[in-house]
Design a protein around this nucleic acid. Structure first.
Length: 711
DNA sequence: CCGGGGGTAT
DNA sequence: ATACCCC
């Protein structure tokens, strides 16, 4: 019956034999016991899964608060891809056809959602926010994030004096009332508080609600996060692993088992999770390989040793459009130009150079309506790629279109009739400028083009990578921060003496790590002390702008790191998260005294170098993207987007008539306020309390209007 | 089994 | 280049 107890034990006693992966071992406190106590203390991972509620709908409701009242569906082509909870109460579901949805709910309000720009931007803000607390963040789609908080939990655990103070935040799967003792699961209990704080941060800073799951691996965290649906969180205890796995209605519900896999499994007579759990491994090995078979079986058992892999910047950017029918090359050419233009601008904001271009099509076929895609790709001539990042997207597009058409003709004989239903353009193999410099022969072009290294204005200030110390905050015992200031109190002042020790060890960790990798600038300007990548001429290196130098070094570091990644124990080494954000930092502030910079590396509240810099140009500072259009192509859109400087979270909590009043005021007052930089003193009725905000986040004071802040 | 993305493995 | 996976 309850064989879950065999493999999922929370505590340091049993666990190991069943699946020996290096991840079962985590070091104890971060270097705290400097001693030789290298015996790794076995510790289960602690994983968080965040899942935003009806994400696209939430974004649209922020852009147009009036939509909160009405049943709202997000429309892509003739499908409702998601809808708000008002609509769900009326029977509308995800991925419902427009006709079905309108039938169920005639007054459903539809907003077109084919342009993902706003969703993508908000999505990266969420990931960036999470990363500012914990570097180990993995994205899954636009609305889900995994966090490995093992280390953070371990640190809090070490600070906790009173073991009786443990408690669970939110639900505990299959436990009701007081039948759970949090002190039996201290790490999961602490993690549930972290999850709650992060959800609160997402809500207060971005205005979004969502669910969280807390468990010992990604699979379980993801499964459990959905158990209480809108805006709640749930912990899964090891003793309930089998319960939750058994609750799944079919193998398809297991993340990682897709359509094809489920079909093959069914062919083997396996339909339920239990079927797969009990299936002899050898029966699977025939159909799937050895490794896949083990993985599938493990999944059914709730075992998942896959690490939380920091996602970083996207590895490809693509843009696509689908349609009923396209059958002439002129149409194709136009569509490709259109797609390339918008994609090119995204690429431009990203700042990296795409090395590969791919064109994908989907052909109509009655018999095999089941869509398959075909694609062809080619290397992008370097000068074209450079045009994109260096500003003249138009030029680049003009030059790319004929190349794209060549690819098109490799797939489609335009003499014969054809019928396409989709075109996709994709840039991949994205390279940082630094990598381009170090690449063979690329150096000449770099200099000859003399493209002044593009300043990444957007990133610099936006990535004030305050690594928030969620740690050392409210460990539960010193509840001095009762009913008051939430954000502040839990982070800052609390950790006094312990904080010092913490910082010390962090410093050591950072230094050691640098020594190991040998490629940070560290405490000297002496080039000789820096290990350059083999293909970089030191003299050339010296001539480069510092920004590029740093990128180069970071890139080199990336390589050394990845060469070592195959060793699992190193890949998951919890000591390395500082260097973890895989992105080279283009923007690291030219630290005046780099010595001290090292000190702040791990724990600072101010900008540090290993910032999550990738949402390249995305989580922009002065963006205020809500001002621009915000008009859904829907009936309701009475132009009541609100000023970008209003905190949507706060706004949404106002009484509704107040919301309406405010919105009509804004409508009247609007004509101006376009420019992101315009900090008009005039309309600043609310220069009230920015103090606390200003403290932590220097640059982007713009966006959130403190006037509405709860005080 | 749509939509507009994104990922890895082969 | 495709096939699978995820949302």
């Amino acid at each position: 019956m309850n064989n879950s107890d065999d493999e999922m034990e929370e505590d340091d006693t049993e666990w190991s034999k069943s699946f020996v992966d290096s991840e079962a071992f985590a070091p104890s406190a971060p270097l705290s016991g400097s001693s030789m106590n290298m015996t790794p203390r076995p510790t289960r991972k602690v994983i968080l899964h965040f899942d935003l509620d009806c994400f696209y709908a939430q974004v649209e409701m922020i852009r147009n608060p009036a939509l909160r009242l009405v049943p709202l569906g997000i429309q892509q082509k003739y499908i409702v891809v998601t809808c708000n909870y008002v609509a769900r109460e009326r029977g509308v579901n995800k991925l419902m056809s427009i006709t079905d949805a309108k039938e169920k709910c005639p007054d459903l309000v539809l907003v077109k959602g084919e342009d993902l720009t706003h969703y993508r931007e908000m999505s990266y803000k969420v990931t960036g926010l999470l990363m500012s607390y914990c570097p180990l963040v993995e994205r899954l789609g636009f609305d889900e994030n995994f966090l490995d908080v093992t280390e953070m939990v371990e640190r809090r655990l070490d600070q906790t004096v009173d073991p009786d103070s443990f408690s669970f935040k939110g639900h505990v799967y299959n436990h009701f009332g007081a039948d759970v003792r949090a002190c039996d699961h201290p790490r999961l209990a602490l993690a549930s508080h972290i999850a709650a704080e992060l959800r609160e941060a997402i809500h207060s800073e971005l205005g979004l609600t969502g669910c969280a799951g807390v468990a010992t691996n990604k699979l379980l965290a993801k499964l459990v996060s959905g158990t209480f649906k809108p805006n709640q969180q749930t912990v899964l205890l090891p003793e309930n692993v089998n319960d939750i796995m058994g609750s799944l209605s079919g193998l398809r519900k297991v993340p990682g088992v897709g359509h094809q896999t489920a079909k093959k499994l069914q062919a083997l007579g396996l339909v339920s999770v239990k079927d797969l759990q009990l299936c002899p491994l050898n029966d699977l090995v025939r159909e799937f390989g050895g490794p896949t078979s083990q993985r599938l079986k493990n999944l059914a058992l709730g075992i998942d040793d896959s690490p939380v892999t920091p996602t970083g910047a996207p590895q490809s950017l693509s843009d696509e459009d689908s349609f009923k029918k396209m059958s002439s090359t002129t149409e194709v050419l136009e569509k490709i130009r259109e797609l390339l233009t918008s994609l090119g601008e995204r690429m431009h904001k990203d700042g990296r150079l795409p090395q590969t271009f791919r064109l994908t099509i989907r052909r109509y076929s009655a018999t095999n309506k089941w869509f398959s895609r075909e694609s062809r790709q080619l290397p992008i001539p370097i000068h074209i790629a450079q045009k994109m990042t260096s500003g003249s997207t138009e030029d680049a597009v003009v030059q790319l279109v004929p190349l794209a058409m060549k690819l098109f003709h490799k797939m489609v004989d335009s003499n014969a009739a054809f019928h396409l239903t989709l075109i996709n353009v994709c840039f991949s193999n994205l390279q940082t400028r630094a990598a381009a410099v170090s690449g063979k022969g690329a150096i000449t072009s770099f200099f000859s083009q003399s493209s002044p290294p593009k300043k990444k204005q957007l990133e610099d200030s936006s990535q004030d990578a305050r690594r928030r110390c969620l740690d050392e905050g409210e460990v539960g015992v010193h509840n001095t921060n009762r009913g008051k200031v939430t954000t502040q109190s839990s982070f800052s002042s609390a950790a006094a003496s312990q904080g010092v020790e913490q910082k010390q060890s962090s410093l050591h960790a950072a230094e050691e790590e640098q020594r190991e990798s040998g490629c940070f600038l560290k405490e000297t300007n002496n080039l000789a002390s820096v290990r350059l990548p083999p293909n970089v001429d030191p003299e050339v290196f010296e001539l480069l702008p510092e920004e590029i130098q740093q990128e180069l070094l970071a890139t080199a570091h990336l390589h050394t790191k990845s060469s070592v990644l195959s060793s699992p124990s190193f890949a998951d080494d919890p000591f390395t998260p500082n260097i973890n954000p895989p992105r080279p930092s283009t923007n690291s502030p030219p630290t005046e005294k780099t010595k001290n910079a090292a000190k702040t590396l791990d724990i600072s509240h101010r900008a540090t170098s290993p910032s999550p810099q990738w949402p390249a140009g995305i989580s922009g500072v002065q963006r205020d993207s809500t001002t621009e259009q915000g008009k859904p192509s829907s009936p309701q859109s009475s132009g009541c987007d609100f000023p970008g400087n209003v905190d949507p979270a706060v706004f949404s909590e106002l009484p509704y008539d107040v919301q309406r009043e405010l919105m009509s005021e804004w409508k009247r007052e609007r004509p101006v306020q376009k420019t992101p930089s315009s900090r008009k003193p005039g309309r600043n009725v609310m220069a009230k309390e920015r103090d606390r905000r200003a403290a932590g986040r220097s640059s982007q004071a713009n966006n959130l209007l403190n006037y509405f802040k709860p005080s």
